[in-house]
């Protein structure tokens, strides 16, 4: 008991290092992730991005504000990547900005991981644009509400906005169908709620660090249509996006092969739930109308492993789980020591 009472905190550090390090190694080697059950907050986030632009019956203009830095990238990057993933798959037009000086690097990182690798057909200036960082915190949001070109005259590469095709028709915040924001502090989610979503009534979804989330919960679901808190929120959202992307790809292949939408949708959902069924279905009579290429594409889409960058959130939940369990254990241990000492003190 004396050892525990005078426990050197470096033992705690070592235990934490093991609880974080070992799962990272094991997950890295095996690729195993823990199952995620999406909460309504993550589902609302996903749905809002999914339906963006539908109200106006057009391809959505989504403003993506990446207000974070490398320090919080470990917590926020997975949700940023998944957000770009969903927007790209959905075919939304993406307008990236940042109110943090190092935000443009975070944008580049997500663009390089998702668009450049998995959606090379997307054209810069037509499908996505990086408007870079603008100093001035919430003042920038206020001005953007009235006139976007006052704050952003060029994109991050110095090209004037008039030369960028997707900027035509974009004058202020009201020209966007959705604002999706990833925040690590000030300026961040709260400022976007106060000066964009409340003022101009534009749908806003936000992902944030765990420390910020409690302050933003009151804004859900009115001013904030969806909320992702920390790596847990990222993992839930990532799971939803990955499931939907696979389903969307399968549906697309089946529809292209000539199946009516009413039939392709449920079938794709069946395949997404149990990929093993695809190989047996493709050799059945029901698939006789499908070309061999379509069948091969279908099998590949159903069984291909999800790329690592789209699993970062779920992978990080492993270390998170063991770290939390360690915390619970430490708190219990601390109290055992406390009560043992008290009993001893009381006895003497």
């Amino acid at each position: 008991m004396n050892f525990l009472n005078n426990l050197d905190r470096r033992w705690i550090f070592l235990a934490m290092a093991l609880c974080v390090g070992v799962p990272i190694l094991v997950i890295g080697l095996t690729g195993y992730t823990f199952p995620e059950t999406p909460t309504p907050l993550a589902e609302a986030f996903f749905d809002e991005v999914d339906v963006a632009g539908e109200a106006k019956g057009r391809r959505a203009n989504v403003l993506l504000a990446f207000d974070f830095d490398p320090a919080s990238a470990g917590e926020l990057n997975p949700m940023a990547v998944s957000l770009v993933h969903q927007c790209a798959q959905k075919g939304h037009r993406m307008y990236f900005i940042s109110l943090w000086p190092v935000g443009p690097q975070m944008i580049m990182d997500a663009v390089n991981k998702v668009i450049k690798v998995h959606y090379p057909e997307m054209v810069y200036g037509e499908d996505y644009v990086n408007l870079g960082f603008k100093a001035g915190n919430e003042q920038v949001i206020k001005v953007m509400g009235v006139d976007l070109t006052t704050e952003f005259r060029t994109d991050v590469e110095g090209t004037t906005l008039s030369q960028i095709p997707m900027m035509s028709g974009i004058t202020n915040l009201e020209d966007f169908d959705l604002i999706a924001e990833i925040s690590a502090g000030y300026p961040g989610s709260k400022e976007w709620v106060l000066y964009a979503s409340t003022q101009f009534n534009i749908p806003l979804v936000s992902g944030m660090t765990g420390v910020q989330a409690p302050q933003l919960y009151p804004y859900f679901p009115n001013q904030l249509k969806g909320l992702l808190g920390a790596i847990k929120g990222a993992a839930e959202y990532e799971y939803l996006v990955n499931q939907w992307v696979r389903l969307d790809k399968l549906t697309g292949i089946l529809e292209q092969a000539g199946l009516p939408p009413g039939e392709a949708g449920p079938l794709a959902a069946e395949f997404a739930a149990s990929p093993d069924q695809v190989s047996t279905w493709t050799v059945s009579a029901a698939a006789s109308t499908l070309s061999p290429e379509a069948k091969a594409a279908l099998i590949e889409a159903a069984t291909e492993p999800i790329p690592g960058e789209y699993l970062e959130g779920q992978r990080r939940m492993g270390p998170q789980l063991f770290a939390h369990l360690l915390m619970v254990f430490l708190i219990i241990l601390g109290n055992v020591i406390f009560f043992a000492q008290r009993r001893r003190g009381g006895g003497s």
Binding site: P70, A71, A323
Partner: peptide, 28 residues
């Protein structure tokens, strides 16, 4: 240089949160 150094500083929090929880949470 900057990115790894900043991330390192931030991740130190995990260790400090554990030691603070061990010390501070007592059912007094």
């Amino acid at each position: 240089v900057f990115k790894p150094l900043t991330a390192t500083m931030f991740s130190i929090l995990a260790f400090y949160v554990a030691s603070a929880a061990f010390r501070a949470f007592r059912a007094k």
